[in-house]
C-alpha cells in the first residue's frame, strides 16, 4: 500500500478528532471533581455515585430497559413472521404491497411515525404511558427485525425444511426444530438491533409517552435544557461503555464463528 501523504494524514487526524474528541471530553469530564463542566478540578467518581442515587434517572433507566427488552422481543417474533411470509410465502395477491409496507417505516421520518401513533392513541382513547411506548417501538423494531431475518432466511436452503417434513415433521415442527436453530443468529442480531434502536429513541418515545413514563433519552434531553451536569456526563459515559462492549462482543462472536467455519472446512478437507 502507498504511504499516506502528509495531506491525508492531516485530514484523517482532523476528521477523527472531530468525531471522537467530544466523546473523549465527555468521558474525561465525567470524572471531574469540579461541578463546573468546563473546568478540570481533579479526578473523582462522585458523579457516578450521585447518578446511582438520583431516583429520577434510575427510574428512567428502568423504564427504558423494560421498554427496550419487551419491544425488542415482540418485534423479533413479529418480524420473524413477516420474514417468513416474505421469503417463503411464494406468490400471493398483494405480495409486493406487503413487502413494501414492511420496508416503508425504515425510511419514514420519525416525527411522522410518532405523530401518527399519537393521533391513533388519542383517537382510541388509549391511556398513554409505558404501554404505548412499547407498542410504538414494536412497530418500528419489527420492520428492522423482518429485514435482518429475511436476509438470513432467503439464503437458507429450503430443502432443509422439506427434509424435516419428509422425515415426519409437520410444517410447524419443522420450523421449530430446523429453521429456528438455523436462523437463530439472525434472530439474536435482530433482537439486539431492535433493543438498541429502542434504547436510542427520543422522538417517537416523546410523542407516545404519557405521565410517569419517561425514558432515559427523554430524561437526558430534558435535563440538558436546564444545563449540562456532570451526572449527565457520567450517564453518557456508561451508555457509551455499554454500547462499545456490545459492539466488541458481537464482532468477537462473529470472528470466532468465522474462524470455526474455516477450521471445520479444513478438517473436512483433510479427511476427504
Amino acid at each position: 500500500m502507498n504511504k499516506l501523504s502528509r495531506f491525508n494524514i492531516t485530514s484523517l487526524t482532523l476528521g477523527f478528532a472531530f468525531l471522537y474528541l467530544p466523546i473523549l471530553l465527555l468521558i474525561l469530564f465525567s470524572f471531574n471533581a469540579s461541578k463546573l463542566v468546563t473546568v478540570w478540578g481533579g479526578f473523582s467518581t462522585k458523579w457516578y455515585v450521585s447518578l446511582f442515587q438520583n431516583e429520577a434517572f434510575m427510574d428512567a433507566a428502568w423504564v427504558t430497559i423494560r421498554v427496550a427488552a419487551i419491544s425488542a422481543t415482540a418485534a423479533t417474533i413479529l418480524g420473524c413472521f413477516g420474514a417468513i411470509v416474505m421469503v417463503r410465502g411464494g406468490k400471493f395477491y398483494g405480495r409486493t404491497l406487503f413487502s413494501g409496507m414492511i420496508y416503508a417505516p425504515l425510511v419514514m421520518p420519525e416525527v411522522i411515525t410518532g405523530l401518527s401513533l399519537l393521533l391513533l392513541f388519542v383517537a382510541l382513547n388509549f391511556d398513554r404511558g409505558i404501554t404505548t411506548i412499547i407498542l410504538a417501538h414494536i412497530t418500528f423494531g419489527m420492520c428492522y427485525a423482518a429485514v435482518v431475518i429475511s436476509s438470513r432466511l432467503s439464503t437458507m436452503d429450503q430443502s432443509l425444511e422439506e427434509a424435516a417434513m419428509d422425515l415426519g415433521c409437520t410444517p410447524f415442527k419443522a420450523f421449530i426444530k430446523i429453521t429456528a436453530p438455523v436462523i437463530a443468529p439472525a434472530m439474536v442480531s435482530a433482537w439486539l438491533l431492535a433493543f438498541t434502536l429502542s434504547l436510542d429513541d427520543l422522538v417517537i418515545a416523546s410523542f407516545t409517552s404519557g405521565p410517569g413514563a419517561t425514558t432515559l433519552p427523554m430524561k437526558i434531553y430534558s435535563s440538558v435544557r436546564l444545563g449540562v451536569t456532570p451526572e449527565i456526563n457520567a450517564l453518557s459515559t456508561l451508555l457509551i461503555a455499554t454500547i462499545t462492549l456490545g459492539v466488541i462482543t458481537a464482532s468477537w462472536a462473529n470472528k470466532r464463528a468465522e474462524a470455526n467455519r474455516i477450521k471445520d472446512e479444513q478438517l473436512a478437507f483433510a479427511n476427504d
Binding site: 436452503d157 432443509l160 419428509d166 436453530p181
Partner: peptide, 13 residues
C-alpha cells in the same frame, strides 16, 4: 415415503 435430496439437505446444527 422418504427422499434423499440432491442437495443432501443435512441439518447443519
Amino acid at each position: 415415503v422418504n427422499m434423499m435430496f440432491q442437495s443432501y439437505a443435512l441439518f447443519p446444527h
